[in-house]
Amino acid sequence: MIAELNLKPIAIIHSGFKEKFGIPRQPGLASSMTATIELLPEFASAEAVKGLETCSHIWLVFVFSACVDKGWSPSVRPPRLGGNQKLGVLASRSPFRPNPIGLSPVRLETVRIENNGIYLDVSGADLLDQTPILDIKPYLPYSDIIEDASFELATRAESLDLDVRFTPAAEAALHTHAARLAVPLQTQIEEILRCDPRPAYHKNKQDERVYGIRLHDLNIRWMINSEYIQVNEIILDS
């Protein structure tokens, strides 16, 4: 029996998500979000990624680095259940686990070898910027897709069927920053906000407060009601 196991990160991810609030709770829900995985120098070998470019998707095994010092509890209150019902931590995807390890499938866009560095460009990742990556594995459709798999407490992806509107000031800023960052910023914002980042106890209520999420180097100020989501401001993060 192994009493203790020390794992060394092999890479870090460079992502537009600068804080936990606003990150979709599952991978693939914001498919327009791109990120870059940078292999650390000790593992940045062209031989190590040979053949990986033939994969359409890969698995990322990572550390919930923002939760390492937060400890864990045998029961949690998943947002999907409204934050009121308790569930066993091992029946959830809570980051507050006995070992804070996560697993995400992402689309592999390109494998780049530049200036002795190895970079994997991916899309659909739900990882905080600078998250340590413990391992990378190919996604195998013939074995990783289980057609009759089920989980009664989570039968489908949750997404709000609401229009996302931008104030005139926000729309002007949107075009400016989308061009500067060279990303589909409007699509990214819409996908993220339709995932409803609000805490579970704020949902299903008349909510007139203004929320903020940090995305790339921006602060997105937004609010939500029963009819639409409104982006009030898009400003450079101070």
Rank of each mutant, 00 (worst) to 15 (best):
L153I: 08
V164W: 00
Q230K: 14
V68S: 03
P105A: 14
A182P: 01
L128Q: 01
P78S: 08
Q186N: 04
A48M: 10
F96T: 10
L181R: 08
S73G: 09
R209Q: 12
E109V: 12
Q130Y: 07
C67E: 14
I234Y: 00
A178E: 15
K20L: 07
A172S: 09
D161Q: 14
K20S: 11
I10G: 06
E190P: 04
S65D: 14
D126M: 04
P74L: 03
K203W: 01
D144G: 12
L160V: 06
G71E: 03
G124Y: 03
Y211C: 04
I37W: 06
D144Q: 10
Q188H: 02
D196P: 08
S92N: 05
I235Y: 00
L134F: 05
L153Y: 10
S238K: 13
T54G: 05
K203M: 10
P9K: 12
D161F: 07
R77H: 11
V61S: 07
R156P: 00
I220P: 01
I189Y: 01
V61A: 04
S150T: 11
S45I: 01
M223S: 15
D196H: 09
N99D: 01
E158H: 14
P41W: 11
D144H: 13
T155R: 14
N6T: 12
L215P: 00
S45Q: 10
D135W: 04
P95I: 05
K18E: 08
Q186A: 12
E53Q: 15
L52I: 14
W59S: 10
T110N: 14
N84G: 05
K86G: 02
G124E: 03
L134A: 03
E191Y: 06
R165I: 04
Y119Q: 12
R165N: 13
L193Q: 01
E4Q: 11
E53A: 15
V183G: 05
W72C: 06
E19Y: 05
N99W: 03
N6H: 06
G88L: 04
V183Y: 08
P27R: 02
S123K: 14
A3E: 15
V68W: 00
N115E: 15
R198N: 08
I213R: 01
P9W: 13
F96S: 04
F151S: 07
I234K: 02
E42W: 00
